[in-house]
């Protein structure tokens, strides 16, 4: 498949009084055409820096990045018309304008002919379900509406490549779902999407491939199943049981990442990891603490993998 983004040895350093600080430290990856590619990592890991460099707003201090075959440093003008981006949060809008005016403004910046603007804006606002609010001033909008307006804005130039930086941050569940549906819809139309998010389930649901990034370096890259398999050595269990001496269980250190939730005394639901993959043995050991109602081995989720790989961060 055609590579739409090629990143080789990319670094970005900032000068601080104490010396150089690397926001990105020698990262390399490719993104193929039509993919939804997730960049996951804690705050400050370098996700946004990567996106700013790829959208030509920031220059790297070392390495090379090509977007759509063009160099982000020297050929930024060739890239800008064919990509677009959305940053999460409520910034990046003019509160005094209505959605329609806002869209017109960016249509002009993206060189859409005057006579084509109205029809395009109507389509895009319909797509993100803002048609009823098009004449409201943006400062009256909710976070979800602003986010959808950003999506509409970023589609103005019919981009081949979209960067979505935490698009669902701070949204309520319905707003977030609406946004995920839009992302899926865009992907089905063949647009390549680079997505960052802190919601693992969202990443699992949307992304074809994922890169874990921490401390400015990529620690793992692959499709979601590959990433989960990287944690196959983890033996995760979930159990429902009655426990008589909860303190004794808590003090026992053969359980890793033990999470205990009380259902109704003395019944508890447990989540834990142990160095043993035989369910029978685990079950036998656990029954020394109380009566087991239900126990099963749990599938590794993307969140489990994330927590495992990021455990040494902050």
């Amino acid at each position: 498949m055609e590579k739409i983004i090629e990143v080789k040895g990319l670094s970005r350093a900032y000068k601080l009084k104490t010396g150089l600080k690397y926001a990105l430290d020698d990262i390399s990856f490719d993104v193929k055409k039509g993919e939804v590619f997730g960049l996951l990592g804690p705050n400050g890991a370098g996700k946004t820096t990567t996106i700013k460099i790829l959208t030509t707003l920031l220059l790297p201090t070392a390495g090379e990045a090509r977007v759509l075959g063009y160099d982000v440093v020297s050929e930024s003008h060739m890239i800008r018309n064919r990509i677009n981006f959305v940053y999460g949060g409520e910034r990046g809008v003019y509160g005094r304008l209505t959605a329609k005016e806002y869209m017109h403004y960016f249509c002009t910046l993206y060189k859409i002919k005057n006579k084509d603007q109205a029809a395009l804006i109507k389509d895009l606002l319909n797509l993100v379900k803002l048609q009823d609010a098009e004449n409201q001033k943006i400062h009256t909008y909710s976070k979800g509406m602003i986010q959808r307006l950003h999506i509409a804005r970023c589609l103005i130039n019919d981009p081949e490549l979209l960067f979505l930086d935490e698009p669902t941050i701070g949204l309520d569940p319905i707003g977030a779902k609406l946004l995920r549906d839009i992302v899926r819809d865009l992907s089905s139309k063949g647009i390549t999407i680079i997505l960052t998010t802190h919601y693992m389930q969202e990443a699992d649901e949307l992304c074809d491939r994922i890169a874990f990034i921490k401390g400015g370096k990529i620690s793992l890259i692959g499709d979601p199943d590959f990433i989960k398999q990287s944690c196959n050595h983890l033996n995760l269990y979930e159990a429902t049981m009655s426990i008589y001496d909860i303190e004794k269980l808590k003090e026992n250190n053969s359980f890793n990442k033990l999470e205990i939730e009380v259902i109704k005394e003395p019944y508890y639901s447990l989540n834990f990891e142990v160095n043993e993959n035989d369910l029978e043995k685990v079950s036998a050991y656990l029954s020394t603490f109380g009566d087991i109602l239900k126990i099963s081995k749990r599938n590794i989720s993307l969140e489990d993998a994330y927590i495992y790989h990021m455990k040494d961060v902050g």
């Binding site: 959208t55 030509t56 707003l57 003008h77 800008r80 018309n81 981006f85 940053y87 910034r91 990046g92 809008v93 003019y94 509160g95 960016f106 002009t108 910046l109 993206y110 060189k111 804005r153 130039n157």
Partner: peptide
């Protein structure tokens, strides 16, 4: 203040023209 400067600059319209 609105965080829109980068959105303007990132558009294909040359910065000088904007």
């Amino acid at each position: 203040r609105y965080g829109t400067l980068e959105l303007n600059i990132a558009s294909p319209t040359p910065t000088l023209l904007i």
